[in-house]
């Protein structure tokens, strides 16, 4: 079995005349949190969709847990837990109905996850009466917290989370970070994180990949990005900002840096 949960080989995607992703080689080690970063329009969502098997690469390969997704997208269907950037849920249904639907899609029942889900609800301050209201009546933070639960409750080995704490209050954001850490440390999950929130990245990211204009300009662990882009101040946020501002190819580090 592969030591990487995700491995891309010269992965590219073209939309008509635009190259959205340009020959990227990402390696996400198993049981780790990998942050895929980049300014808006850098190609993060397109890359994530290719990893999910929802977009066909124009060139290159994607391997998830050893399966070649580019050749056979069906091979990884149902193997990845997904928390999309926006609260993707059925707004006319209640949170409970939404959760039960996601569970049923994954061949699980509410009883199968009762203990775990009750724990999540407690941590994220989701009251039982909230579960019976239409999703549309919940606040943005409540919707995001429910969406997070919907993604993690399916018990997938590999989870993709796009802005998991966006729109959440400080307490809920803190608990979500703690749940994410537990998922990796205690349950051995692998997480691909896409976020612009520095506190999330500082606390969670073990490895970072920085995309800019469709190219992977940096890939390495947190220490390496600090040493490369902010050697004087040793500040993580500065390092990310500097990496975003640096011209493509100026300080590129070999993708092979993740051993």
């Amino acid at each position: 079995m592969s030591e990487f949960m995700v491995k891309t080989v010269n992965l590219s995607k073209d939309f008509k005349m635009t190259r959205a992703v340009n020959r990227i080689n990402i390696k996400i080690p198993k049981k780790s949190i990998y942050a895929l970063l980049g300014p808006n329009g850098a190609g993060k969502t397109t890359t994530i969709r290719m990893i999910l098997g929802l977009l066909k690469p124009s060139a290159g390969e994607v391997y998830v847990n050893g399966f070649n997704v580019s050749e056979n997208p069906k091979s990884i269907r149902g193997q990845i837990g997904l928390l999309p950037q926006f609260s993707a849920a059925y707004y006319d249904l209640t949170p409970l109905q939404n959760i039960k639907f996601i569970l049923a899609l994954n061949n699980l029942t509410f009883d199968d996850v009762n203990v775990k889900i009750t724990d999540y609800f407690e941590k994220l301050d989701i009251k039982p009466d909230l579960l019976q209201k239409p999703f549309t009546k919940l606040s943005g933070g409540e919707q995001r917290a429910i969406s997070f639960v919907m993604a993690v409750i399916t018990d997938k080995e590999f989870l993709i989370m796009d802005e998991p704490t966006s729109g959440l209050d400080i307490a809920r954001a803190k608990y979500i970070r703690s749940i994410i850490k537990d998922l990796v440390e205690e349950e051995g999950k692998t997480i691909l994180l896409s976020s612009h929130i520095v506190s999330d990245l500082e606390e969670l990211a073990e490895y970072c990949g920085i995309l800019k204009e469709g190219s992977l300009v940096f890939q390495g662990d947190k220490e390496e990005i600090i040493n490369t882009y902010s050697p004087e101040t040793k500040d993580f946020e500065d390092a990310i900002v500097n990496a975003f501002q640096a011209p493509v190819g100026s300080k590129s580090i070999s993708p092979e840096v993740i051993k």
Binding site: L52, L54, R77, G78, L82, A88, I102, L105
Partner: peptide, 8 residues
């Protein structure tokens, strides 16, 4: 995205 990712 959710439907396409989870449905075999």
């Amino acid at each position: 995205e959710i439907l396409l990712s989870y449905t075999h």
